[in-house]
Structure formats: structure tokens, C-alpha cells
Computed example of a mutant assay.
Amino acid sequence: MNRVELSAQIIERKALRYTPAGLPALDLVLAHESEVTEAQQSRQVKLELRAVALGPMAELLNRMDAGKPFRLTGFLGAPRNGRGVLLHITDIHDIV
């Protein structure tokens, strides 16, 4: 299974573009911060993650204010250059 649920905020957004099939696509950088428990120890987690959204999700995220927290669902894939990890956003929940 490849499913990600994350709270995040947009810290960088590229210009809305269109795929060869005509779908809107938006490249983003997200920031996440939380506290988790690992091996019975509390741990602070802070990260930045590259993400992409397609179709109506791209249009919605293009209108959202940067820095506004939201929860998302998606899956992990490889970016076009094949290096690192890219989060594909499929749904947004609880826009605060």
C-alpha cells in the first residue's frame, strides 16, 4: 500500500502548468511539523517535501494561501528526474 496522510502548509508554489494531456499541474514545496513517539520517546519532526497536484486539486491548491495549514492525502512516487521522493496530492481535508 502507498498512502500518505499529512498535515502541512505550502511554502513554495510554482506557476500552474498543463500536462501534454491538458490537465492542470502544480508543483509545490510543503512544510510539516509535528511531535511523534518513537521507541517510547517523544520526537519533534520538521520537514520540507516536494509535492505535485493534478486536475481540480492543482487548481484548488493554486488558490490557497501559502502558510495556511491543511491536511492532505496522497501517495509517494519518483519525480521526473528519478531522484528523491515526490508526494502526489490526491485530496485535501480540513483547510484551516
Rank of each mutant, 00 (worst) to 15 (best):
A8S: 09
R63D: 14
M64P: 00
S7L: 09
I95K: 09
R3W: 09
N81Y: 05
M1K: 11
A39T: 11
L47H: 09
G77N: 12
L23Y: 14
D27N: 11
R17Q: 12
D91Q: 15
A15C: 08
N81I: 05
G74Q: 02
D94M: 06
F75Y: 13
R83L: 10
L60Q: 12
F75K: 12
M57V: 15
H93A: 12
E33T: 14
H88K: 11
Q44C: 10
I95A: 09
A78G: 07
L49K: 09
I92E: 07
R3M: 10
P24G: 02
G84P: 06
T73N: 10
F75W: 09
F75V: 07
H88P: 05
L54K: 09
F75D: 00
T90G: 12
G74P: 00
A66T: 14
E48H: 12
R83S: 09
T90I: 00
A66P: 08
Q41D: 05
L54V: 09
A21Y: 07
L28M: 04
K46D: 08
I89K: 01
D91L: 05
A51W: 01
A31R: 14
T90R: 02
R43G: 06
Q41Y: 04
L87K: 03
P56T: 14
E59I: 09
R13F: 02
A21K: 13
L49G: 01
V36Q: 10
L87P: 02
A66V: 07
R83D: 06
E12F: 14
N62G: 13
G82L: 03
A58E: 01
D65R: 13
P24A: 08
G84F: 00
S7W: 08
S42I: 13
N81T: 05
V29D: 02
V36W: 06
G67T: 01
L72S: 00
R80Q: 15
E12V: 11
L28H: 03
N62R: 04
H32W: 06
L47G: 15
I95Y: 10
A8I: 00
V4T: 13
D91F: 05
Q40G: 09
A78F: 12
N2I: 04
R13K: 13
T19S: 06
D27I: 05
A53P: 00
M64G: 02
L47E: 14
L61N: 03
M64S: 05
T90P: 00
A66L: 11
A15K: 11
M64K: 01
G82C: 06
N62A: 13
L16S: 04
E33A: 14
G84A: 01
L49Q: 15
R71A: 13
H93D: 12
Q44D: 14
I89T: 00
F70C: 03
I10E: 05
L60K: 07
E48V: 12
I92W: 03
L49P: 08
A53C: 05
V52K: 06
V52L: 07
L87W: 00
E38S: 13
I10D: 05
